[in-house]
Computed example of a mutant assay.
Amino acid sequence: MSTAPIFTATPVISSAQISTANTNRDGTGTLADIATGATNGTRIDRITVIATGTTSAGMVRLYIYDGTNNRLWKEVPITAIAPTAAISAFASVLPAQALILPNGYKLRASTHNAETFNVIAEGGSY
């Protein structure tokens, strides 16, 4: 056990684009790797989900993969938006997550509807 606080040493910004419809909540189907835990662990502080075009009501799902199983961690509700020059595409920021991914663990994502989203994780590795 450390008697002094530790901080992340290497900044991490990792991302993936998801677009294949996956209505499963059990961790099966098409999932994209967003971030992977480094040797001494990786801390995810913020996750951004942003659409690249029109969206309909649905869900983006985030999973934690432990090397064997995908476990549903969070669901991000998606609202219907038709972006224009004056209307922004759907975006959601999940701040202050403080998710710690141990070595080899992964943060994964899927989209309920066949719509394209960029999922971006920001944090640091220890």
Rank of each mutant, 00 (worst) to 15 (best):
M59V: 14
Y105W: 13
L62R: 01
I13L: 14
T84W: 08
T52F: 14
D26L: 05
A21Y: 11
T54L: 10
I47C: 04
L101F: 12
T42L: 13
E122R: 03
P77R: 05
A32G: 02
D26R: 03
A98T: 03
T116W: 06
T42R: 10
D66G: 10
Q97S: 10
S19Q: 10
S110V: 06
L72E: 09
G41M: 12
A109D: 06
N24A: 15
A57N: 13
Y105N: 06
S15D: 09
Q97Y: 01
G124H: 06
L107H: 04
A38E: 01
A4W: 07
N103D: 11
S125G: 07
N22L: 05
Q17V: 15
Q97E: 09
A86V: 14
N113P: 00
T42E: 11
N70T: 03
L94C: 07
A16D: 15
G124D: 07
L99N: 01
G123Q: 03
G67W: 08
Y126A: 10
I87N: 08
Y126F: 15
I50E: 15
P83R: 04
H112A: 01
T84E: 09
T116V: 09
G29Q: 05
P83N: 07
A51Y: 03
I100N: 11
R43Q: 13
A89V: 00
I87D: 09
A85K: 13
A82L: 13
G124R: 08
H112N: 01
A121N: 04
P95Y: 10
T48C: 01
M59A: 09
L107Y: 01
S2D: 11
V119I: 15
T84K: 12
